[in-house]
Design a binder for these strands. Structure first.
Lengths: 325, 325
DNA sequence: TTGTAAGCGTTATCAT
DNA sequence: ATGATAACGCTTACAA
């Protein structure tokens, strides 16, 4: 059996409700007894029982994160950032790498204060009975009506990349990212690409979208190699993600190409890592910090009252110049 | 308020204790009422309250994993594997990416049935009062006396790699991995390297350990490039991890080197991913599946009784031949 | 400033 | 086969 407030109360010689108050630093308790309680708690190795507490308070202070379990630097970085912000607000983030279904069930059983769904958690499996449940928000994409989401406007971000490149005079612009079997989030990107080309008055050519299939750096490397074989070589390329970009510049370096002289590159994913690559890469996207803030705020509001948060929180992407274009 | 067993009992017209039994599929309950209860539960959208349950059962079925939050494929892969095995045993894995201190506190408050520490969780911060607490085991390294660990014998694994290479006639063997400021786990590896050389009667040369600094693929790439500049080029190289190996072969390909003709490679990390690299890489180490099994078993035994598990569970590494040596 | 007691949603032990 | 009821460890009126 682990130590409870009753054990402490015996030690100190006060009632256990006084101990409870002392532990919660209530102003109703005399400083001196507070101190004694704290000391006894320390000495006995007391650990509060969250279950008991939450049973009465109806709050756990837990935020469940349904993690796609994908090794992508951009995602890890974002989740870390979110976790920190939540901690500042007194909330504790817990990740589950189970199937979304199971993960959600676990967090509901735990009575997490809110659930955050990461993008790849595939939409349709998530059945939600009409009953009031744990507030749930999704990041990146609308998962289900009734689950508000934070939208980072990937379409607009990529469009902006094209606009920027076109503005600098580039006309042979390629896009590397998942294409044929892309998820909705990834589709948005090449839609933005086409839109940008159109606005810039550049005729779209099918072969200038190179399908990377996946989103890992290996995929970027492969796609870039493939791109460089094109008879008419692009002079600029837009990468669909940080990890892809890392692979792409690796391929360029392998071919002895210099950036941006031989070929320019702008990548999606506005994260600090981008600066650390061998060649600091210009980026488009909503800054990681802004996403983290928006997500945290939305989560907090959802905890207050889920009806209080709009179905879609839209963030505005920006372009950050570095040395790659 | 969410739905409780009392709500169900009202619906069905039985006492809530009967509902409880029905929900737990007790044989003491008539099939027909069981069915009615289940239906009502479903209809009302009942979600069991883990807090209330665990308060009386003293078990949560939760295993807390303290995650170093490092982007390494080998680790993600392993944790996923562990998670699956735990699920088979009816346990739910939850990850925390907080600081080890906080993470442990969280899991203790939650009354997780056990805590699993991943290697990089730096040892000394983990203070443990003498009181009985949540069983805790660590993977990879002894963290603290009293915290049993599962040892994958990295030293022996790398030694085996050297032996294998030497047995095939290679004499100019290099090692790429963290060196100068390596953690204890990483030190073990180059100790195994030196040991292997010694046994093979090869004189150790300082410059044949190339310090990768980190453990990411970028680090491997950089170190390999550096290695290739050596006046006397190695004919075989041992990589300290999967991710490093990925970077290393990338570098080789960039230089137009073919594996294993121009240079052979064996890597630490016995994981499935190794097969998927452009060049399937021979590996040494304890198979991921075996680690996962050992960890899960140890965890289960620790939950039974922490005294029941030995301080060190030692696993035996193996060599797996692929096409890289 | 401290103590008493009710109650949170379950499980488990007795009765019935 | 079902129902009462006492825990579990805590918070929170309410009393003293």
């Amino acid at each position: 059996m682990s130590v409870t407030i009753k054990d402490i109360s015996k030690q100190v010689g006060v009632s256990y409700s006084t101990v409870a108050k002392a532990l919660n630093n209530s102003p109703l308790v005399k400083e001196s007894t507070k101190r004694k309680v704290m000391e006894a708690a320390e000495a006995l190795g007391y650990t509060p029982n969250l279950a008991a507490r939450s049973l009465v308070t109806k709050r756990t202070g837990l935020v469940g994160i349904v993690w796609p379990g994908i090794d992508r630097a951009a995602l890890s970085s974002l989740v870390t950032s979110i976790q920190r912000r939540l901690a500042e607000k007194g909330l504790t983030a817990l990740l589950s790498i189970h199937e979304p279904q199971e993960a959600i069930a676990t967090f509901e059983n735990l009575r997490a204060d809110a659930i955050l769904l990461f993008e790849e958690s595939t939409a349709d499996i998530i059945a939600r009975p009409s009953h009031r449940r744990t507030p749930m928000i999704s990041i990146g994409m609308p998962i289900k009506p009734g689950v508000p989401y934070v939208d980072m406007n990937r379409r607009e971000a990529i469009r902006l990349a094209v606009e920027t490149l076109a503005g600098k005079g580039y006309e042979r612009i390629a896009y590397i990212g998942p294409y044929a079997e892309a998820s909705m989030q990834q589709q948005e990107k090449w839609i933005g690409f086409k839109e940008g080309l159109h606005q810039a008055g550049i005729t779209f050519q099918e072969e200038w979208i190179i399908d990377s299939r996946g989103l890992l750096w290996q995929d970027g490397y492969r796609a870039a190699k493939q791109m460089l074989k094109l008879s008419e070589r692009p002079t600029a390329v837009i990468s669909g993600s940080y990890d892809l970009a890392a692979g792409i510049i690796r391929a360029f370096q392998g071919e002895g190409l210099s950036v941006p002289q031989d070929i320019a590159i702008i990548s999606y994913d506005h994260i600090p890592h981008m600066e650390q690559l061998e060649i600091p890469i210009s980026a488009v996207g909503v800054a990681e910090a802004d996403i983290a803030t928006a997500v945290t705020d939305t989560l907090l509001r959802a905890i207050e009252s889920i009806d209080n948060v709009s179905d879609r929180t839209s963030l505005t992407p920006a372009y950050i110049h570095r040395e790659s274009d």
